[in-house]
Design a protein around this nucleic acid. Structure first.
Lengths: 151, 151
DNA sequence: CTCCATATTATTGCGCACAATTATATCGTG
DNA sequence: CACGATATAATTGTGCGCAATAATATGGAG
Protein backbone atom coordinates (compact mmCIF):
# COMPACT_ATOMS: atom_id res chain seq x y z
CA UNK A 1 0.00 0.00 0.00
CA UNK A 2 1.64 3.26 -1.07
CA UNK A 3 2.06 5.97 1.53
CA UNK A 4 0.45 9.21 0.39
CA UNK A 5 0.91 11.40 3.47
CA UNK A 6 -2.49 12.92 2.90
CA UNK A 7 -2.32 14.84 6.16
CA UNK A 8 0.73 16.77 4.94
CA UNK A 9 -0.73 17.93 1.65
CA UNK A 10 -1.26 21.65 1.41
CA UNK A 11 -4.76 21.32 0.12
CA UNK A 12 -5.81 19.33 3.14
CA UNK A 13 -4.58 21.78 5.70
CA UNK A 14 -6.01 24.94 7.06
CA UNK A 15 -2.66 26.46 7.87
CA UNK A 16 -1.44 27.23 4.38
CA UNK A 17 -4.51 28.90 2.86
CA UNK A 18 -4.95 30.92 6.03
CA UNK A 19 -1.31 31.99 5.92
CA UNK A 20 -1.33 32.82 2.23
CA UNK A 21 -4.72 34.52 2.28
CA UNK A 22 -3.84 36.75 5.19
CA UNK A 23 -0.66 37.82 3.43
CA UNK A 24 -2.51 38.57 0.20
CA UNK A 25 -5.08 40.68 1.97
CA UNK A 26 -2.42 42.62 3.86
CA UNK A 27 -0.76 43.20 0.53
CA UNK A 28 -3.97 44.64 -0.89
CA UNK A 29 -4.09 47.16 1.93
CA UNK A 30 -0.55 48.41 1.47
CA UNK A 31 -1.17 50.86 -1.34
CA UNK A 32 -4.41 52.44 -0.16
CA UNK A 33 -2.91 52.95 3.30
CA UNK A 34 0.28 54.46 1.97
CA UNK A 35 -1.15 57.92 1.48
CA UNK A 36 -2.09 57.99 5.16
CA UNK A 37 1.36 56.85 6.21
CA UNK A 38 -0.09 53.75 7.90
CA UNK A 39 0.95 50.12 7.88
CA UNK A 40 -1.69 47.44 8.01
CA UNK A 41 -1.17 46.72 11.71
CA UNK A 42 -1.23 50.42 12.52
CA UNK A 43 -4.51 50.64 10.62
CA UNK A 44 -6.00 47.89 12.77
CA UNK A 45 -4.90 49.77 15.88
CA UNK A 46 -6.67 52.86 14.61
CA UNK A 47 -9.83 50.87 13.88
CA UNK A 48 -9.83 49.62 17.46
CA UNK A 49 -9.35 53.07 18.93
CA UNK A 50 -12.09 54.53 16.74
CA UNK A 51 -14.51 51.83 17.72
CA UNK A 52 -13.77 51.47 21.43
CA UNK A 53 -12.18 54.79 22.34
CA UNK A 54 -8.98 55.53 24.23
CA UNK A 55 -7.48 52.75 26.32
CA UNK A 56 -4.21 51.51 27.79
CA UNK A 57 -1.52 49.73 25.82
CA UNK A 58 -2.35 46.52 27.58
CA UNK A 59 -6.05 46.67 26.74
CA UNK A 60 -5.17 47.45 23.15
CA UNK A 61 -2.83 44.49 23.11
CA UNK A 62 -5.61 42.18 24.22
CA UNK A 63 -7.91 43.34 21.47
CA UNK A 64 -5.36 43.09 18.70
CA UNK A 65 -3.57 40.01 20.06
CA UNK A 66 -0.17 41.66 20.38
CA UNK A 67 2.41 41.86 23.14
CA UNK A 68 4.27 44.97 24.22
CA UNK A 69 7.30 43.80 22.28
CA UNK A 70 5.42 44.61 19.09
CA UNK A 71 3.03 47.21 20.34
CA UNK A 72 5.40 49.53 22.19
CA UNK A 73 7.51 50.55 19.18
CA UNK A 74 4.48 50.54 16.88
CA UNK A 75 2.69 53.01 19.15
CA UNK A 76 5.74 55.24 19.19
CA UNK A 77 5.60 55.34 15.40
CA UNK A 78 1.89 56.14 15.46
CA UNK A 79 2.63 58.96 17.88
CA UNK A 80 5.35 60.25 15.58
CA UNK A 81 2.83 60.22 12.73
CA UNK A 82 0.59 62.41 14.88
CA UNK A 83 -2.43 60.11 15.15
CA UNK A 84 -2.16 59.19 18.83
CA UNK A 85 -0.56 60.47 22.01
CA UNK A 86 1.12 58.35 24.68
CA UNK A 87 1.05 59.34 28.35
CA UNK A 88 1.12 57.64 31.71
CA UNK A 89 -2.17 57.30 33.55
CA UNK A 90 -2.37 59.50 36.63
CA UNK A 91 -3.90 56.80 38.83
CA UNK A 92 -1.45 54.13 37.80
CA UNK A 93 1.79 55.24 36.29
CA UNK A 94 2.57 51.76 35.05
CA UNK A 95 -0.19 52.01 32.49
CA UNK A 96 0.36 53.80 29.20
CA UNK A 97 -2.72 55.71 28.09
CA UNK A 98 -3.22 55.74 24.33
CA UNK A 99 -5.42 58.59 23.11
CA UNK A 100 -6.49 59.69 19.68
CA UNK A 101 -5.26 63.11 18.70
CA UNK A 102 -7.39 65.52 16.71
CA UNK A 103 -5.62 64.28 13.56
CA UNK A 104 -6.24 60.70 14.57
CA UNK A 105 -9.94 61.34 14.95
CA UNK A 106 -10.10 63.27 11.71
CA UNK A 107 -8.45 60.40 9.88
CA UNK A 108 -11.52 58.29 10.49
CA UNK A 109 -13.50 60.36 8.04
CA UNK A 110 -10.77 60.42 5.39
CA UNK A 111 -10.07 56.70 5.49
CA UNK A 112 -13.64 55.48 5.04
CA UNK A 113 -13.08 54.73 1.38
CA UNK A 114 -10.41 52.13 2.12
CA UNK A 115 -12.56 49.15 3.19
CA UNK A 116 -14.70 49.72 0.14
CA UNK A 117 -11.65 49.61 -2.13
CA UNK A 118 -10.40 46.40 -0.58
CA UNK A 119 -13.77 44.76 -0.73
CA UNK A 120 -13.62 45.12 -4.47
CA UNK A 121 -10.26 43.32 -4.56
CA UNK A 122 -11.42 40.15 -2.83
CA UNK A 123 -12.83 38.01 -5.57
CA UNK A 124 -15.66 36.24 -3.79
CA UNK A 125 -19.42 36.79 -3.82
CA UNK A 126 -20.75 38.69 -0.83
CA UNK A 127 -22.46 35.68 0.67
CA UNK A 128 -19.18 33.78 0.70
CA UNK A 129 -17.42 36.70 2.31
CA UNK A 130 -20.03 36.90 5.02
CA UNK A 131 -19.69 33.20 5.66
CA UNK A 132 -15.90 33.39 5.70
CA UNK A 133 -15.99 36.28 8.14
CA UNK A 134 -18.42 34.44 10.38
CA UNK A 135 -16.25 31.32 10.46
CA UNK A 136 -13.10 33.28 11.25
CA UNK A 137 -14.84 35.22 13.99
CA UNK A 138 -16.07 31.93 15.40
CA UNK A 139 -12.55 30.56 15.60
CA UNK A 140 -11.33 33.72 17.28
CA UNK A 141 -14.17 33.73 19.78
CA UNK A 142 -13.58 30.16 20.79
CA UNK A 143 -9.84 30.63 21.02
CA UNK A 144 -10.31 33.68 23.23
CA UNK A 145 -12.62 31.77 25.54
CA UNK A 146 -10.27 28.82 25.63
CA UNK A 147 -7.46 31.05 26.87
CA UNK A 148 -9.65 32.45 29.59
CA UNK A 149 -10.58 28.98 30.78
CA UNK A 150 -6.94 28.18 31.34
CA UNK A 151 -6.51 31.16 33.70
CA UNK B 1 -28.91 61.05 11.70
CA UNK B 2 -25.96 59.80 13.75
CA UNK B 3 -22.89 58.64 11.91
CA UNK B 4 -22.01 55.06 12.87
CA UNK B 5 -19.14 54.32 10.50
CA UNK B 6 -20.39 50.77 10.09
CA UNK B 7 -17.83 50.07 7.40
CA UNK B 8 -15.00 50.68 9.85
CA UNK B 9 -16.21 48.33 12.58
CA UNK B 10 -13.99 45.34 13.15
CA UNK B 11 -16.86 42.92 13.10
CA UNK B 12 -17.90 44.04 9.67
CA UNK B 13 -14.54 43.59 8.04
CA UNK B 14 -12.74 40.58 6.75
CA UNK B 15 -9.30 42.00 7.37
CA UNK B 16 -9.20 41.81 11.12
CA UNK B 17 -10.45 38.26 11.76
CA UNK B 18 -8.21 37.02 8.96
CA UNK B 19 -5.22 38.81 10.44
CA UNK B 20 -5.91 37.69 13.99
CA UNK B 21 -6.80 34.12 13.04
CA UNK B 22 -3.67 33.64 10.98
CA UNK B 23 -1.56 34.87 13.86
CA UNK B 24 -3.28 32.58 16.34
CA UNK B 25 -2.79 29.56 14.12
CA UNK B 26 0.88 30.35 13.57
CA UNK B 27 1.20 30.65 17.30
CA UNK B 28 -0.27 27.17 17.74
CA UNK B 29 2.39 25.75 15.46
CA UNK B 30 5.32 27.30 17.27
CA UNK B 31 5.68 24.74 20.05
CA UNK B 32 5.16 21.54 18.07
CA UNK B 33 7.65 22.73 15.45
CA UNK B 34 10.24 23.74 18.00
CA UNK B 35 11.61 20.24 18.49
CA UNK B 36 12.31 20.07 14.76
CA UNK B 37 14.04 23.43 14.79
CA UNK B 38 11.54 24.81 12.27
CA UNK B 39 9.62 28.07 12.09
CA UNK B 40 6.14 28.11 10.67
CA UNK B 41 7.23 29.52 7.31
CA UNK B 42 10.06 27.01 7.09
CA UNK B 43 7.51 24.28 7.77
CA UNK B 44 5.40 25.47 4.85
CA UNK B 45 8.47 25.39 2.61
CA UNK B 46 9.10 21.80 3.66
CA UNK B 47 5.46 20.87 2.97
CA UNK B 48 5.82 22.26 -0.54
CA UNK B 49 9.05 20.42 -1.21
CA UNK B 50 7.62 17.15 0.11
CA UNK B 51 4.53 17.49 -2.03
CA UNK B 52 6.00 18.79 -5.27
CA UNK B 53 9.64 17.73 -5.09
CA UNK B 54 12.81 19.74 -5.63
CA UNK B 55 12.52 23.05 -7.48
CA UNK B 56 14.20 26.41 -7.91
CA UNK B 57 13.97 29.25 -5.44
CA UNK B 58 11.77 31.18 -7.84
CA UNK B 59 9.29 28.34 -8.29
CA UNK B 60 9.15 27.88 -4.55
CA UNK B 61 8.51 31.59 -4.15
CA UNK B 62 5.54 31.40 -6.48
CA UNK B 63 3.98 28.57 -4.54
CA UNK B 64 4.44 30.13 -1.14
CA UNK B 65 3.86 33.72 -2.27
CA UNK B 66 7.25 35.00 -1.16
CA UNK B 67 9.96 37.09 -2.82
CA UNK B 68 13.65 36.38 -2.73
CA UNK B 69 14.08 39.03 -0.07
CA UNK B 70 12.39 36.70 2.38
CA UNK B 71 13.15 33.38 0.79
CA UNK B 72 16.90 33.72 0.23
CA UNK B 73 17.89 34.04 3.90
CA UNK B 74 15.20 31.59 5.00
CA UNK B 75 16.59 28.93 2.65
CA UNK B 76 20.08 29.54 4.00
CA UNK B 77 18.77 28.82 7.47
CA UNK B 78 17.04 25.66 6.29
CA UNK B 79 20.31 24.55 4.72
CA UNK B 80 22.10 25.23 7.98
CA UNK B 81 19.54 23.07 9.76
CA UNK B 82 20.41 20.30 7.31
CA UNK B 83 17.01 19.81 5.70
CA UNK B 84 17.80 21.17 2.23
CA UNK B 85 20.78 21.87 0.02
CA UNK B 86 21.25 24.91 -2.20
CA UNK B 87 23.13 24.74 -5.49
CA UNK B 88 23.11 26.46 -8.84
CA UNK B 89 21.44 24.63 -11.70
CA UNK B 90 23.89 23.39 -14.31
CA UNK B 91 21.77 24.47 -17.27
CA UNK B 92 21.09 27.93 -15.91
CA UNK B 93 23.39 29.25 -13.27
CA UNK B 94 21.03 32.04 -12.39
CA UNK B 95 18.64 29.56 -10.86
CA UNK B 96 19.13 28.24 -7.34
CA UNK B 97 18.16 24.57 -7.06
CA UNK B 98 16.60 23.65 -3.74
CA UNK B 99 16.81 19.95 -2.92
CA UNK B 100 15.72 17.93 0.05
CA UNK B 101 18.57 16.25 1.90
CA UNK B 102 18.25 12.79 3.37
CA UNK B 103 17.41 14.43 6.71
CA UNK B 104 14.85 16.64 5.02
CA UNK B 105 13.13 13.66 3.52
CA UNK B 106 13.29 11.71 6.76
CA UNK B 107 11.67 14.60 8.59
CA UNK B 108 8.47 14.02 6.67
CA UNK B 109 7.85 10.82 8.57
CA UNK B 110 8.69 12.31 11.96
CA UNK B 111 6.55 15.39 11.55
CA UNK B 112 3.31 13.68 10.58
CA UNK B 113 1.88 14.06 14.05
CA UNK B 114 1.99 17.86 13.89
CA UNK B 115 -1.09 18.57 11.72
CA UNK B 116 -3.07 16.21 13.92
CA UNK B 117 -2.00 18.11 17.03
CA UNK B 118 -2.96 21.46 15.54
CA UNK B 119 -6.26 20.18 14.30
CA UNK B 120 -7.17 19.49 17.89
CA UNK B 121 -6.37 23.09 18.82
CA UNK B 122 -8.75 24.72 16.36
CA UNK B 123 -12.08 24.83 18.10
CA UNK B 124 -14.47 24.32 15.21
CA UNK B 125 -16.45 21.28 14.07
CA UNK B 126 -14.91 19.46 11.12
CA UNK B 127 -17.59 20.56 8.69
CA UNK B 128 -16.89 24.21 9.49
CA UNK B 129 -13.16 23.65 9.04
CA UNK B 130 -13.73 22.07 5.66
CA UNK B 131 -15.91 24.97 4.62
CA UNK B 132 -13.42 27.51 5.90
CA UNK B 133 -10.59 25.80 4.04
CA UNK B 134 -12.63 25.71 0.86
CA UNK B 135 -13.45 29.40 1.05
CA UNK B 136 -9.84 30.39 1.69
CA UNK B 137 -8.62 28.21 -1.16
CA UNK B 138 -11.22 29.82 -3.38
CA UNK B 139 -9.94 33.30 -2.56
CA UNK B 140 -6.37 32.21 -3.23
CA UNK B 141 -7.28 30.57 -6.52
CA UNK B 142 -9.09 33.61 -7.79
CA UNK B 143 -6.36 35.96 -6.66
CA UNK B 144 -3.74 33.85 -8.40
CA UNK B 145 -5.73 33.86 -11.61
CA UNK B 146 -6.31 37.58 -11.34
CA UNK B 147 -2.56 38.19 -11.21
CA UNK B 148 -2.03 36.08 -14.26
CA UNK B 149 -4.66 38.00 -16.20
CA UNK B 150 -2.73 41.19 -15.64
CA UNK B 151 0.40 39.74 -17.25
C1' DC C 1 7.00 51.70 56.78
C1' DT C 2 9.70 47.84 54.53
C1' DC C 3 10.07 44.28 51.52
C1' DC C 4 8.53 41.08 48.32
C1' DA C 5 5.22 39.76 44.82
C1' DT C 6 2.77 41.34 40.99
C1' DA C 7 1.41 44.39 37.08
C1' DT C 8 2.68 46.97 33.25
C1' DT C 9 5.59 48.54 29.76
C1' DA C 10 10.19 48.73 27.41
C1' DT C 11 14.21 46.55 25.41
C1' DT C 12 16.86 43.01 22.95
C1' DG C 13 17.57 39.49 19.71
C1' DC C 14 15.98 36.68 16.10
C1' DG C 15 13.19 35.62 12.15
C1' DC C 16 9.54 36.88 8.70
C1' DA C 17 7.80 40.23 5.02
C1' DC C 18 8.50 43.36 1.39
C1' DA C 19 10.10 47.35 -1.55
C1' DA C 20 14.07 48.96 -3.72
C1' DT C 21 18.41 48.18 -5.30
C1' DT C 22 22.39 45.51 -6.79
C1' DA C 23 24.87 41.55 -8.83
C1' DT C 24 25.30 38.04 -12.07
C1' DA C 25 23.92 34.95 -15.75
C1' DT C 26 21.43 34.28 -19.98
C1' DC C 27 19.31 35.53 -24.30
C1' DG C 28 18.46 37.97 -28.46
C1' DT C 29 19.74 41.13 -32.07
C1' DG C 30 22.75 43.36 -34.96
C1' DC D 1 31.09 38.14 -31.31
C1' DA D 2 29.37 42.43 -28.70
C1' DC D 3 26.02 44.67 -26.24
C1' DG D 4 21.75 45.85 -24.33
C1' DA D 5 17.52 43.63 -22.39
C1' DT D 6 15.80 40.29 -19.41
C1' DA D 7 15.79 36.68 -15.72
C1' DT D 8 17.12 35.23 -11.30
C1' DA D 9 18.76 35.67 -6.84
C1' DA D 10 21.10 38.38 -3.06
C1' DT D 11 21.39 42.49 -0.29
C1' DT D 12 19.71 46.48 2.33
C1' DG D 13 16.55 49.01 5.06
C1' DT D 14 12.22 49.31 7.57
C1' DG D 15 8.54 47.36 10.14
C1' DC D 16 5.91 43.41 12.25
C1' DG D 17 5.87 39.40 15.64
C1' DC D 18 7.35 37.07 19.67
C1' DA D 19 10.12 35.06 23.57
C1' DA D 20 13.04 36.40 27.12
C1' DT D 21 14.55 39.73 29.98
C1' DA D 22 14.86 44.23 32.25
C1' DA D 23 12.89 48.35 34.29
C1' DT D 24 9.58 50.68 36.95
C1' DA D 25 5.30 51.27 39.59
C1' DT D 26 1.88 49.40 42.67
C1' DG D 27 -0.07 46.66 46.35
C1' DG D 28 -0.09 43.70 50.29
C1' DA D 29 1.82 41.25 54.40
C1' DG D 30 4.15 41.72 58.36
Amino acid sequence: MPETYEELKLENQLCFPLYACAKEVVRQYRKPLEEFNLTYTQYIVMLILWEYGDMSEGQLGEKIHLESGTLAPLLKRLEKSGYISRSREKNNERRLAISLTKEGLALKEKIRQVPEKIHGCIPLPDEDLILLRALLNKVLDKMNNKEKEID
